[in-house]
Amino acid sequence: MTGVDRLREVSRAAFGQMHRLELMLAILAVEDGIVTLTEVHRSMSGVAMSSLQKPFEALIECGLLTRLPNGDSRSRFYVRNDSAAWSWAVELSEAAGVPALLACRDAPISQMRS
């Protein structure tokens, strides 16, 4: 079983959805805490965008992300809000034997912005 498989197993047990923990860790890896769903999706290779939409919306509904006002961009930007939930995501990742920094396999999202 791979590290990603373990994360998804823990995510299903904790959240009832297999990508939410991985999604939280990908958002947490963004240094400035400002993300778009598209950017997060790009950082999570092998995960369909449709698999991330509901977990992303759940993070907004529970106050972990807040939508920023639209600017000149067509993209919808969100900011990560301070919460102990992010620390819990790291704790769950480490309990699964996958250090949080290794859980995000690709380049940091902040490096993908043009």
Rank of each mutant, 00 (worst) to 15 (best):
T2W: 09
G3N: 05
G3A: 12
R8W: 07
R12L: 14
R12N: 10
A13C: 10
A14C: 06
F15A: 02
G16C: 09
M18Y: 12
H19T: 05
H19F: 13
L23Y: 00
M24D: 01
M24Y: 07
L25K: 03
A26T: 04
I27S: 09
L28S: 09
L28Y: 04
L28M: 09
A29R: 02
I34E: 13
V35L: 11
E39C: 02
V40W: 06
M44N: 07
M44F: 09
S45V: 12
M49P: 02
L52W: 01
K54L: 00
P55T: 08
F56A: 04
C62H: 02
G63M: 05
L65W: 13
T66K: 10
L68R: 10
L68Q: 09
G71W: 04
S73A: 15
S73L: 13
S73T: 14
R74E: 13
S75W: 06
S75F: 11
S75Q: 04
Y78N: 14
R80V: 07
R80C: 14
N81T: 10
S83F: 07
S87R: 15
A89N: 11
A89T: 10
V90M: 13
E91Y: 05
L92S: 05
E94F: 11
A95W: 11
A95L: 11
P99T: 07
L101A: 13
A103T: 08
R105S: 07
D106K: 12
A107F: 01
I109F: 02
S110E: 15
Q111H: 09
S114N: 07
